[in-house]
Simulated assay, not measured.
Amino acid sequence: MAQKYRIYINQKVILITESVPKHPEKYEPLEQQSFDLKTLYPKVVNNNDRSYYYVLCDNAKAFLKQVIKSVTLIEAAGGLVKNGKGDYLFIFRNGKWDIPKGKLEKGEKPRAGAVREVEEECGISIGECGKKIVNTYHVYTLKGEVVLKKTHWYKMKYKGKEKLKPQIEEGITEVRWLNKREINMVTDNTFPSIMDVLLKRDLLEDIPAPLSE
């Protein structure tokens, strides 16, 4: 199977792929040889006519590694938590639904960081951290520098009965358990990278075309 990775810039996506997308008319092709994330970033941000781009390459994983090396990398981790009722844990932060996550501390392993962030942001104790779901990538500017954030996502289980407590100082105003039928509320107002996590866990009924590539 051809490999593919998505890098997000705001609500826009750059698809790194080993095969032409199923819906190429939605995408603007980018040249692999001249690809430079630092110069591409402002062009993508300021282009109001295009939201999807793709880079066709022989080895998507190797190309992604090259891209990561070309900019400052920030690593983060988070968890999609499921309770005994089959509900999933979501947070409402800065006007959007999200999944608890945060930057790794110096020397911290992604799995440990994911558990810490969930516990800090939601006020509960995680009993079990499972397998990796996916890594997501998004680009933004920090103090005028183009940086790439890699977020490690893990499956988690919760069996306790603690009261949810949002970490207000991190901009979180609500923490809620949602069942599969209620997840539409999240997908109507969330980030593209969160859609990637939900897609990997088969929690999306209607998959947007670019995500289905």
Rank of each mutant, 00 (worst) to 15 (best):
R181Q: 13
V67Y: 04
K159S: 12
N184E: 14
R50W: 08
K132V: 13
P210M: 04
G144C: 08
L198H: 04
K165F: 03
A76Q: 02
T17N: 12
I133Y: 11
Y158A: 03
L211P: 11
V197F: 10
R50C: 12
Q33V: 11
E182M: 12
H152F: 11
F90N: 02
K101Q: 14
K69D: 14
L142F: 01
E169A: 02
R201P: 00
V67E: 09
S34F: 13
I7R: 08
K38T: 12
P110N: 02
E119V: 06
E31G: 15
L142S: 02
A60V: 00
K165I: 13
A209G: 00
E128G: 05
V115M: 11
V147K: 07
M156E: 08
G86D: 14
L211G: 06
Y140R: 14
H138I: 07
E25L: 13
K149C: 05
Y41E: 14
T173K: 14
N48K: 02
P208T: 05
R6T: 00
Y137I: 06
K65Q: 15
V197H: 01
A2Y: 13
K157L: 13
T187G: 05
T17D: 15
K22G: 14
K131M: 11
P21R: 13
K82S: 04
T173L: 05
K157I: 04
V118P: 10
G144P: 05
K101E: 14
E18K: 03
D202F: 00
T141Q: 09
V71K: 08
P29S: 06
I99C: 08
T17V: 11
E120K: 15
H23M: 10
K163S: 14
E28W: 02
E25P: 06
V115E: 08
K157Q: 15
I68K: 15
P110E: 12
E18Q: 14
W97N: 05
R111F: 03
R181K: 15
L73E: 14
P210D: 07
I207C: 10
D36T: 07
F191R: 14
L211T: 05
N83Q: 03
L164C: 00
L142G: 02
D87F: 03
R116Q: 07
L89N: 01
Q167A: 12
R6K: 03
K150E: 04
D202I: 00
S70Y: 09
G160W: 11
G130W: 10
V197I: 15
S70E: 06
A62D: 15
I68D: 12
I16H: 11
V139D: 02
Q11I: 04
K150F: 05
I74F: 10
V55D: 10
L80V: 01
V67K: 07
G95H: 11
Y53R: 01
Y137A: 08
K4T: 12
K131I: 07
T173W: 03
I16F: 09
W177E: 09
F63G: 04
